[in-house]
Design a protein around this nucleic acid. Structure first.
Lengths: 246, 246
DNA sequence: ATATGAAGACTAGTATGGAAGTTTTTCCTT
DNA sequence: AAGGAAAAACTTCCATACTAGTCTTCATAT
């Protein structure tokens, strides 16, 4: 039973439940807590040195985001990656972000687009330094700032939620190959089209960027079958034990 | 203190918190609980004869949906209708549903499209009978089934959440004029284009349909200023009392 | 009359205990 | 040894109690 401290605990006065959500979300998306893993209110409460209530409320919020599933009287678990769920998330994200790209190109907000460009420059630095985590963060930032440039900053919140489903796949992909150069090139293409005010080109560039995951998805699912829904569940502890006993 | 019973209480064995969410969401969307109105965990708990805890959990879920705002140590209130929020929701919905319309037209799933058509026939009946509530429900059903016909049934969940913001405006609009005929005609136009396999026409028809609200929005905001964010807050009790005292 | 401040009535946040239900284990029977 | 029933150990769910913060209100001082 390793005690864990919430990182923001010292600096901020935010409610415990909120901090728990951030901590758990990050842990799930970065695969520190693996898909299919069982979570327990009691266990996590003890780990963090808090009561069960804020843990429970954190579970509720994560369940709303589709990252965990709460089964009444049975338990809470991190949902496995579902190919269908990832494809659905991708579909929704493509729809919204293509509209964002069009709108950003149409508006041509020079000031906001300068922010986007600055973001890409930082990302280039991170890539050169091999700082993948920072590169990931700046990837998000790029899309968020583009939404702002389209005059729809709030649309990012919806995309962000869908993105969580896709991020776990990307995290697996990152440990495999390093497609940072590809991502960077695509981001630059999007910005160029938007900067040029070409709505159709901007939409197309965005669509290409967001289609990328479709080629790696089946390969990744085949490589880590026990992290995905519907595939072999050999990784499941209960099943494994029962199989060993028989 | 009028005691209220949850309608599904007798029939189902769902958790209390879940039923509270459904009840409150419906009450908020249909304006039975008005924008800006203050909600109290304690008060609602007494009304429903339950403890504060499930009410609190319901608030959390509604806050995730953006229907209520929880201010720590201050209170919980139904968020006022925000023109910006409605426009953002409309933007997102248009992006997703236009993509759905295109995809439905591309796939041409005859079986699923038959369901969509059946839905419109029921809606025509409801319109003839003047059953506005049923018409509203079938409106939702139409869009949901179209998403199914596009092979993206889950995308409806995202649209549904955005729709909640728009529904309150539509509810106000309904009490003003009755645009059922317009809605019906637009739905038929969408289905015709999808049935014909014309992706561009389907997208355009959907876009026209979802642009409708933009013309009524400013009028409605002007008519009920105290229900909207940022406008005159003359309806606020505290301000009214202070004005009377001075 | 106005400004300041303390007391009380609110609020949400958290902790804890018990109830209802499911799963796993254990022990008895066959 | 295998199968089944009882029980123990888990889970979430709900109720209750308490903490801490905010706002209102009324009294007091300027």
């Amino acid at each position: 039973m390793d005690l864990v401290t919430l990182p923001e605990m010292a600096t901020s006065a935010e409610p415990i439940a909120r901090r728990l959500v951030d901590w758990l979300r990050h842990a799930i998306v970065t695969m520190r807590i693996r898909p299919g893993e069982k979570l327990s209110e009691q266990d996590l409460a003890r780990r963090f040195g808090v009561s069960r209530q804020p843990v429970r409320e954190a579970f509720i919020k994560l369940a709303e985001s589709g990252l965990v599933r709460v089964l009444p009287q049975r338990g809470t678990m991190v949902v496995k990656i579902s190919i269908e769920a990832v494809e659905d998330a991708r579909f929704i994200r493509e729809a919204i972000e293509c509209a964002v790209a069009r709108e950003a190109a149409r508006r041509g907000d020079a000031r906001a687009l300068a922010d986007v460009r600055a973001c890409l420059e930082d990302a280039a630095e991170a890539m050169a330094g091999g700082d993948t985590e920072r590169f990931f963060a700046l990837d998000e930032e790029f899309h968020q700032r583009l939404a702002a440039a389209a005059g729809r900053p709030n649309s990012w919140r919806v995309v962000e939620e869908q993105k969580a489903q896709m991020d776990r796949v990307r995290y697996l992909d990152m440990s495999d190959a390093i497609p940072m150069k590809t991502v960077m090139a695509q981001h630059l293409a999007i910005l160029a089209a938007v900067d040029g005010g070409d709505e159709r080109a901007a939409e197309t560039a965005m669509r290409v960027h967001l289609t990328e995951i479709l080629v790696s998805l089946p390969k990744i699912a085949a490589r880590w079958p026990d992290l995905f829904e519907g595939h072999a569940e050999a990784g499941d502890a209960g099943v494994a034990r029962r199989a060993a006993g028989g």
